[in-house]
């Protein structure tokens, strides 16, 4: 499923003194199966954007259209049964999703989404098992345990499974690694990569971590003051718009950032590198040429 965001705007408290323009005419397309990373400051409109795509906020202007495999289109940013049905194909994992767990057992919690979709008990359980399997939780071992007894990292996986069990075609994750230690962080990202491959879905990842976005995303979307300022491959965005990103006050991934530091100190290096090994090669080349 492809999603087209058309000229989307969102204004909070219109007409009041504290009126804020959270989204300002944003347009782009999420291709089927694509991995998009969204970066920007707190308050840049990232969260408003993804919540609008998930149908949780009504846009003030513009619309969101989903294009199905057969070419037919549905406007999902409006009320009505058909929109609501298609919207279900967009799943969203909130920041700190473990804070939304509420059921007595892990199994029941993961079944909550499928239950609301009106599936039979059998189907609910089957989906829950598959989802728990995807996030690496053993349903036989943990299924009947209270979610509140799990460790922090496990809780988060269960919460993500709760969204996966609804079988979305587009999965939005808002800072899924916030507050985790380095191992928990890597585990979650690897899990997302695996889910994407196995379930063949589009991923929209909101993140503060530039290295993650550079490594995992096909395209990067940069938000600032409610506007989309850049959209392109990680290399295009990070290497060609480096100065502009710095001016906004955003981080640059470690590799180009370090090369840029070297360049600023007068070393003759090419800072258009994103990967660790190619960066190392470039530094070695530059340093060795200085020696001669």
């Amino acid at each position: 499923m492809q999603i087209r965001i058309e000229d989307l705007s969102k204004i909070y408290s219109p007409g009041l003194p504290y009126e804020t323009k959270a989204l300002d005419h944003v347009s782009f397309t999420v291709e089927a199966g694509e991995f998009i990373g969204i970066i920007g400051h707190t308050g840049s409109g990232k969260t408003t954007l993804v919540q609008s795509i998930a149908g949780l906020l009504e846009p003030s202007d513009g619309r969101i259209v989903s294009v199905h495999a057969d070419g037919t289109e549905t406007v999902i940013s409006q009320k009505g049964k058909e929109s609501a049905l298609v919207r279900r194909k967009v799943g969203i994992v909130f920041q700190y999703p473990e804070y939304q767990l509420f059921e007595e057992t892990v199994m029941k919690d993961v079944c909550f989404g499928p239950k609301n979709q009106g599936l039979s008990l059998e189907e609910q359980k089957e989906r829950a098992r598959a989802a728990l399997d995807l996030v690496g939780i053993d349903a036989d071992d943990k299924g009947e345990v209270s979610p509140f007894e799990l460790s922090g990292g496990q809780k988060r996986r269960v919460a993500i499974a709760g969204v996966l069990a609804m079988r979305p075609e587009v999965l939005i994750l808002d800072e899924p690694t916030a507050g985790l230690d380095p191992k928990g962080h890597d585990d979650i990202l690897e899990m997302i990569r695996r889910i994407r491959q196995e379930m063949d879905m589009s991923i929209i990842l909101v993140s503060h971590n530039m290295d993650d976005v550079a490594e995992y995303a096909d395209r990067v979307l940069v938000m600032n003051h409610g506007k989309m300022v850049f959209l392109g491959t990680p290399k295009e965005v990070y290497c060609e718009h480096e100065e502009a990103l710095r001016a906004i006050g955003l981080d640059i991934p470690s590799c180009p950032s370090f090369l840029w530091q070297l360049k600023n100190r007068g070393m003759d290096v090419d800072d258009n590198k994103l990967e660790f090994e190619e960066t190392a090669q470039e530094i070695i080349r530059a340093v060795k040429s200085r020696w001669q």
Binding site: D181, P182, K183, D186, S254, C255, F258, F276, E277, T279, A280, I283, I284, V287
Partner: peptide, 19 residues
């Protein structure tokens, strides 16, 4: 499992290449 800082990783890599 603790991740090394970028500079330390890069320094290790550069040492391998004789810097």
């Amino acid at each position: 499992v603790l991740a090394l800082p970028f500079a330390v990783k890069m320094a290790k890599r550069l040492r391998q290449s004789g810097i």
